[in-house]
Amino acid sequence: MRPFGFERPETLERAAGIVAAREDRAAPPPLSSAQFIAGGTNMADYMKLGVMRPNLLVDIGRLADPGLRRIAASPDGIRLGALVRMSEAEENADIRIGYPVIAESLQQAASQQIRNMASLGGNILQRTRCEYFRDISWACNKRDPGSGCAAMDGFNRQHAVLGVSDRCIATYHGDFAQALIALDASVETQSPRGGRTMAFSELHRLPGETPHVETQLMADELITLIDIPAKPWARRSHYLKIRDRQSYAFAVASVAVVLDLEDGAVRDVRIALGGLATVPWRAQEAEDELKGGPLDERTAGRAAEAAFAGAMPREHNAFKISLGRQALVRALLETRDMRV
């Protein structure tokens, strides 16, 4: 690991200001020489591996702003501070009752120890777990732009089938993000240029030609809040995660569903897929297929077909298309059958 300087500012403004003062402030955040660190579960791991090589760490774990650590439920929805720990959010009664998909996605995301450390803001921004990205001896466009992609023709069982480009097929491995997509959440950010709000579904960028540019954020921009609008029907929401083992593993496929049922018919539905795509993935085609009709195994199957119409498999991950479809069917049926 490279040597690094360490700053622990007390205010958000100061934290962002430190990074803004750097010469490379315009670099895409993952390549910036200054990095924010909160829980550290992703950053420390990637620094040890040499994937992240900042020479300055800005520890935001103790920023004084209480809003960053608050979970605020109101009739308008629920607002989660970016420094709320994953385990705190999943145990919150408002979330468990009103937004089960959040609690379920967080609970299955990692071990309790990691969930006790990791912040929600950091969790959203976690970088891929692609084996070829994690080991710096392989070529990787996401880690080292222009170096190539060893995964493309390598062992790519865990790689994405949706949202891929010819530069990158790395999967987005988070879980919480799918819940946020399905709930139509937005995020608020802060930088020296002020605050802004964006739809969560706009936050992540497809790899395209620049897989190292992962989000819309700037290097000196911090997520401060996650805003989830009120949706009474979010009580009927569910996160299904299919893994190679029962726990403490990344999704081979996962599905977040928020379902509005009326007399057995789908009034509205939002679906997001994980473990299958390069970014948190909204399955809008599947939603459209279901809206207005009954929800049964047959209609769910049609929606699942639609969701994967554009899937692009590689040598070892073609099964993810059929698994993804089946997972979507299962998640829809399980959500339908929830007692709310």
Binding site: F6, G40, A44, Q113, M117
Partner: peptide, 9 residues
């Protein structure tokens, strides 16, 4: 809280 000491500087 239980945490992982390897992932914390």
């Amino acid at each position: 809280r239980r945490t992982l000491s390897c992932l914390s500087f």
